[in-house]
Structures are given as C-alpha cells and as structure tokens.
Amino acid sequence: MPTQEEIELQAAAFRRLQKHLMEDRTDVQNIDMMNLAGFCRNCLSRWYAEAAAEKGIEIGKEEARELFYGMTMAEWKAKYQTDASGAQQEAFAKAFEENVGKD
C-alpha cells in the first residue's frame, strides 16, 4: 500500500499534468492526444470519476469534465478546440475502440 507521502507525490504529479494540459498546452487537441497516446483530457476526467466511484462518491460525466477542465466542456470547445480532419476522425475511431472500448 502506498504511503501517505507517495499518495501526496502522486497527487502533485497529477495536478502538474492537469495544469500542463489545461493551461500550458491548450493548443494540443484531445483528438491528437487520443490518436497518439491512447488517452486525452476526457479520459483523465473519466478516470477521476471512476476513482471517485471506487470511494462511493458519484460524479457524473459532465461534472467530472468541469472539475478537470475548470470550465464546462462547451466553454473549452469554444476557446480551444478546432475542427478535426477526416483522417483525425478515422484515427480517433480506431484509437477510441482500442483504448476505451466500443461506445
């Protein structure tokens, strides 16, 4: 079992990743992250909700996204998201199925 210090370090690393993705690299599109790495900001927000559920805390999909993004998904999309090309969408369908499962 991790020590309290390990948990705190893991939490600090997560917060740094979140800041990096939400403040420093808003130019990186979720679709590109998913296609390249097999996860994106939405995955991180889903994992957050899943971790909460393991502790008996219910957090819905939109609430988890807002907690992770620091704004609503609609606000994020309007500020930072660009249209995906056909090739990006095709690659995403494959990456999503491989890494998340069938929708």
Rank of each mutant, 00 (worst) to 15 (best):
L67C: 06
A64C: 02
M71C: 14
F68Q: 05
S85C: 09
D83W: 04
F92A: 06
M22F: 03
R41N: 05
K102R: 02
Q4K: 14
M33Q: 13
L36H: 10
K77P: 00
Y69G: 06
F68N: 00
L9Q: 13
R41Y: 07
N99V: 01
R46A: 13
Q89I: 07
K77D: 05
E75V: 11
Y69D: 12
K102Y: 08
L9V: 11
F92W: 11
I7A: 11
E54V: 02
I57S: 00
L67A: 15
G86A: 03
A49S: 12
H20K: 03
T82G: 01
C43E: 02
D24K: 07
E97Y: 03
L17E: 09
S45C: 06
E62T: 14
K79P: 02
G86Q: 03
M1I: 08
S85I: 01
E62D: 14
Y80Q: 12
A49N: 08
S85N: 06
G101F: 15
E54R: 14
G38F: 03
E66Y: 03
I57T: 10
M71K: 14
A52T: 07
E8G: 00
Y69C: 09
A12E: 09
R16G: 07
A49Y: 09
M33Y: 14
F14L: 14
A74M: 06
A93E: 12
Q4V: 15
E50T: 14
F39G: 01
Y80E: 09
E75R: 12
Q18D: 00
F39R: 14
Q81V: 15
E66L: 01
A11D: 06
M22R: 15
I57Y: 09
D27E: 11
R46D: 10
A78G: 05
L21K: 06
D83T: 08
L36M: 11
V100R: 06
G101S: 10
V28G: 01
R16S: 05
G60W: 07
R46N: 07
E58Q: 13
M22C: 15
G38S: 05
E50R: 15
M22E: 04
F92P: 00
I7S: 04
E50I: 12
K77L: 04
D83Q: 05
N35W: 01
M1Q: 03
A52M: 14
E97D: 04
L21I: 10
E98G: 01
A87V: 09
Y80M: 12
A95C: 00
C43Y: 13
W76G: 00
S85D: 04
E75T: 15
K77C: 12
E97H: 05
G101M: 09
T26G: 02
K61H: 12
D32N: 01
N99W: 14
A37N: 09
R25W: 01
K19S: 10
A52Q: 13
M22I: 15
M33L: 15
